[in-house]
Design a protein around this nucleic acid. Sequence first.
DNA 1: ACCTGAACACCGTTCAAGT
DNA 2: ACCTGAACACCGTTCAAGT
Lengths: 200, 200
Amino acid sequence: MLLAAAMEVVDTHGAGAFSMRALGAFLDVDPTAMYRHFATKNALLDALTDTVIRGVEELPETDDPRRDIRENFRQLRRSLLAHPTLAPLVLRRPPGVGAYWERADHAVAQLHRAGMDPADAANVYQTLLFYTLGHTLSEARQLARAVEREGAGARGGPVAAVRPPAEHHPDLSDAAPHLREENEAQFLAGLDLILRDLPR
Amino acid sequence: MLLAAAMEVVDTHGAGAFSMRALGAFLDVDPTAMYRHFATKNALLDALTDTVIRGVEELPETDDPRRDIRENFRQLRRSLLAHPTLAPLVLRRPPGVGAYWERADHAVAQLHRAGMDPADAANVYQTLLFYTLGHTLSEARQLARAVEREGAGARGGPVAAVRPPAEHHPDLSDAAPHLREENEAQFLAGLDLILRDLPR
DNA sequence: ACCTGAACACCGTTCAAGT
DNA sequence: ACCTGAACACCGTTCAAGT
C-alpha cells in the first residue's frame, strides 16, 4: 500500500529526506504517479501523521480510570516515538481532526467516570494532550537526529546532561541533576502531576 | 542586521516561503552572500528560534512566586505567537540550549522560594515547559496558516469548534463546548492546574 | 574581508501523451 | 483508470573569481 511504503521511506531515511522522487524510486514508479492518489505531498504527509496519532494499540478499559487515562497518553507517546522524524508534523493537524477523537472521547469518558464535570474534564484533557505533545516532540528530536544521521533503528546517544553555567544560575544547578532523568519516568511524573486529584 | 531582516521575511511571508534566495532578494544581495555569516540555512533558523525563545520582555520579580512563574510562561507563549510560522522550529532546539536557561533558572528559583525541593521543582518546571510548548505550538498553527495565506498581520479566523460525531462519542460531546474556549483563558487554566499546590 | 555568478544536484507540480 | 516523461519554476550549497 502506498501509505505503508511512504512510512517505510520516512522511517528509514527520515522525514527530511522524504520526497516524491524518493518515494517513486522506492516503488519503482515515476515520481509523478503518486498524484493520482494524493493531491499533494502535504496531503500524503497529513495521512501519515493521522495514522501515527491513531497508533496501533487498543485503548484500555479497566475499572481504574486513572490508569486508563495514563495508558491512553503513553500510547500516544509510544506511537510518536516510533516515528520520531515524522512526529513534529502532527502539529499541522488541528486537535479537532478525526485521529484525535478516539483518544479525546476515551480520556473525557474516564475523567467523567472519576467524577469530573465536563468543564474540568475538558481542561484536564487538553492539558494532558498538550503536555504529552510538548514532552514527546522534544524527546523525539534527539531520536530523529540519530535516524537522519545513521538511518533506521538508530538508538540515539545517552540523554545529554543539562549543564547551565553554575555561577549565573544557582537555583537551576541544584535542580539540574533532576532534569536529566530517564525520559519515560519523567513523562509519567508529569502526567501524575496533572492527574494528582484523581482517585487512585 | 541580518537576523532582523531574516525575521522580517519570515514574519511577512511565513517560514515556509523563507529561502536564502528570498532573503537575498530582500537585502538586494546575492543569495550566496549569507554564507559568510551563517554556515547553513539551518544555523540561521536556529539563531532565529533562539531569539524567539528568549523574547523581549523582562522576567518578573515580585513577592508572589506563583504569579512570576505564570508570567514567565505567558511571556514564552506571547513570543511564540508573535512569530507563529517560526514557532514549530523551536522543537529543534534542545531544552538545554542557552536560550532556555534564563527561563529555567527563573522558574526553578520561584518554585524553590515557594518551598519545593529541587526534584519536585525540576518536575514542575519541565511539565510547565512542555505543556506550554504543546499548547502554544498547536495554537500557533492556525495563526501560521493565516499568515502563509494572507501575509503578515493576518489574524486567523475564529477558533474552529470541535464537532465530533455525537453518536459515536457521547462523553466527548458533553465536554466539546468547553474545548472551544478562548485560547488564552484555556492556556492559563492548564498552568493553574499544574501549579495548583503552590501557595497563592 | 566581503560579495558575485555560474554551476551542481536536487525539489513539487503540471500536463500532454501513452496503455 | 493509471502510469510516463518532459518541462517549469524553484531549492541549498560550493567554489573560483572578483573588489
